[in-house]
């Protein structure tokens, strides 16, 4: 079943030009499922980088604007989109030319996978 999901994610990722990878991690950045191409930058899928997102959204919730759903970081070479799927974090790594709207539209396709993977984390 894991292989089927990975295959599905590969198909999704291959349809968006410039998308290098999709990772499902817990709040500490430990990967549950990872689909990345060789071009994906190593630092963007490290636990330290991903766990910073959780720290940021925890603090961000104090701003009084509600729960953080998505965080988009645009760098000079890459774009990182992180979605808060409590207790999981979904991270998309893309290059600078990638269409972010297409990545954000993937949320509906990602949701069922995220909700079943979330059971893994909550059961532990």
């Amino acid at each position: 079943m894991v292989e089927e999901i990975k295959k599905n994610l590969y198909e999704i990722a291959s349809k968006i030009e410039g998308l290098y990878g999709i990772t499902f991690t817990d709040r500490d950045g430990v990967p549950l499922l990872k689909v990345t191409s060789e071009s994906a930058p190593e630092p963007a899928i490290k636990p330290n980088f991903i766990s910073t997102f959780c720290l940021a959204i925890d603090q961000g919730s104090k701003l009084g604007l509600g729960k953080t759903n998505t965080l988009i970081c645009t760098y000079s070479q890459y774009q990182i989109v992180q979605m808060n799927k409590h207790p999981l974090v979904v991270t998309f790594v893309a290059n600078q030319q990638c269409n972010l709207g297409q990545i954000l539209a993937l949320e509906a396709q990602i949701d069922p996978i995220a909700s079943s993977l979330a059971l893994t984390v909550t059961e532990i």
């Binding site: 079943m1 894991v2 999901i5 990967p31 549950l32 079943s116 893994t120 532990i124």
Partner: peptide, 27 residues
């Protein structure tokens, strides 16, 4: 340790939810 634990757990959880997930995997 956590990566190992997740790998084992994922297989168990996904085997239980196979039917529900199969429909949503249509790309």
């Amino acid at each position: 340790e956590r990566v190992k634990m997740y790998n084992i757990k994922i297989n168990q959880v996904l085997a239980g939810n196979k039917g529900a997930l199969a429909n949503s995997l249509k790309s």
